[in-house]
Every structure is written in structure tokens, then in C-alpha cells.
Simulated scan of single mutants.
Amino acid sequence: MSRSKREIPHFYLSTTVDMAAALEWMRARNRELPLSARLVPAALMLKAVALAVRKVPELNGHWADDGFVPAEDVRLGVAVSLRGGGLAAPSLAHADTLSVDEVMAALKDLVARARGGRLRASETADPSLTVTNLGDQGVEAVFGVVYPPQVALVGLGRIVGRPVAVNGLLGVRPVVTATLSADHRAADGATGARLLTTMDRLLQQPEEL
């Protein structure tokens, strides 16, 4: 982390994502699934990030030899807090090609094995982008530190009910704050904004995730 803050010129962006459509779809899907396989919002958001970064490849890769090297696929790192303290960030390989159900199963498996000290070496190899989700800790927004040699990190907070105007009518909607921390050497604010808006758009059409 010291190296990251010393060497990487960070910039930060955030957006508020309406989760009403995603949660409605998730509840309908969960009625069809056994209890052990039911989805949580994190699975939908991870899949949306993976698809978004596939569409914005300028943030999917590593900074090496004074230049950006794009990754060949989407290896989505998932920050996991360990029982004894500290963090691990195992990766979901080819995360953009997995179904939401497969993302959910892989997420449960990775978290359990990370906390049990049973990760494989291939799963701890450099992810191409990392996601940190602190929603289950009650945090509404997280602005993370980019893990070198990656060039971007997406932060997800807690889903909360907020007053939102929709088609001119005010109502309470479930929303989440999504943030981006990125390396200004590899990308700029316009590129970062495309990533967040693409993620937002995907979550409004959860059936296409």
C-alpha cells in the first residue's frame, strides 16, 4: 500500500446506482433456486463490473515498464477480509464469461477457502482489476487504494434506501454508491466515467448479466 500511494497518481470517481431492477430480478431468480445457491447482490455487482471492464479495457490490466499492458482476459480480484486480520484478493478468472449463478458459487468458494488458508497459487496471481465490497460492514462508500501493478479498483458500499425522483415522481429506491480508484498514468476521468456508467447501465438490465 505504501508503494501504491508513493508511485501511483490516484484519481477517484463515484456514482449512485439504482438497484431496484437488479434486486427485483434477483428475488425472482432466488425463488427458482435452492437455498444453498441463492444469489446475493454482490454477485450481480461483480458480474456487472466484469462486463463493464471488458467494454472499457483501458482499466483492465497492469502498469509495467512505464506503460500500460492490457490483460488478455478479465481476472477480477475480490478483496476478502481474513479472520486473523489483513486482506487477500483471490481472483475470478474469466469473470466476464461466467453466469451470475457461477459468479455466486465461485465467490462463496473463494471466500471460504481464503479464510481457511486454502487458496491455490493460480488464484492469487495478479488480478487485472480488484473489487472491494464493504457493504456488509455497513459502509456506504469506499475509496480504495489501487493494488500495483493493477491500474484500477472498484469500491462498492451498502445498499440503502434513498429518496429518488423517477419520471418526475419522488420515491424511496434502493441505491448503492460505486466508486473507482484509478491510476492517472493509464487512464483519465472520462475513461473512468465510462466504466462506472457502463456498470450502472448493466445493472438496470439484470436479465442480460
Results as ranks from 00 to 15, higher is better:
A64Y: 01
S99A: 14
L92T: 04
Q205P: 03
A125I: 11
A93K: 14
A79Q: 07
V74F: 01
A121T: 14
A28L: 14
T97N: 08
A79N: 02
R120E: 08
R162N: 05
A121K: 15
E7K: 13
D96H: 13
A182C: 12
I8K: 00
T197W: 09
M19K: 07
D183F: 01
L87G: 13
L59P: 02
L23K: 08
D126N: 07
S14R: 13
H94R: 15
A42Q: 09
T132S: 13
V111C: 10
Y147R: 04
R6F: 12
G85M: 12
D109F: 02
V78M: 11
L13E: 05
T97S: 13
A186N: 03
D18Y: 04
I159A: 05
L110T: 08
L13A: 07
S181G: 14
P174Y: 09
T97K: 15
R201M: 00
G86S: 12
V69R: 02
A37V: 10
R38Q: 15
T191H: 03
H94T: 15
L110C: 11
S99L: 12
E207F: 01
E58L: 13
L129T: 04
G138S: 14
V69D: 03
D65K: 03
L82K: 15
G84R: 15
A178C: 08
T97H: 14
H62S: 08
R162C: 02
S2M: 12
E32Y: 06
V131Q: 00
E32H: 11
V146H: 02
D73S: 15
A106W: 00
A22Q: 03
A105V: 12
L23V: 09
V53A: 02
S14Q: 10
A28H: 10
D101P: 06
N167F: 11
A186K: 02
A178D: 01
L76T: 08
D96T: 14
R120H: 13
R38K: 15
A165G: 10
A28P: 00
V146D: 00
Q137A: 15
S128N: 11
G171F: 04
R83S: 12
N30M: 07
S4C: 10
Y12P: 04
A165Q: 11
E24R: 15
E123K: 08
V56N: 05
M199W: 01
E102V: 14
N133Y: 06
L92S: 04
D188E: 01
V145R: 08
R185W: 01
P148H: 05
T177K: 05
D66R: 11
N167L: 13
E208I: 02
E102F: 11
G171E: 09
W25D: 01
G189R: 12
V146M: 01
F68S: 07
R27C: 10
T198E: 01
G86A: 14
V53G: 06
L44A: 06
G135T: 10
R31L: 13
M1L: 09
V139S: 05
Q204P: 03
P148T: 09
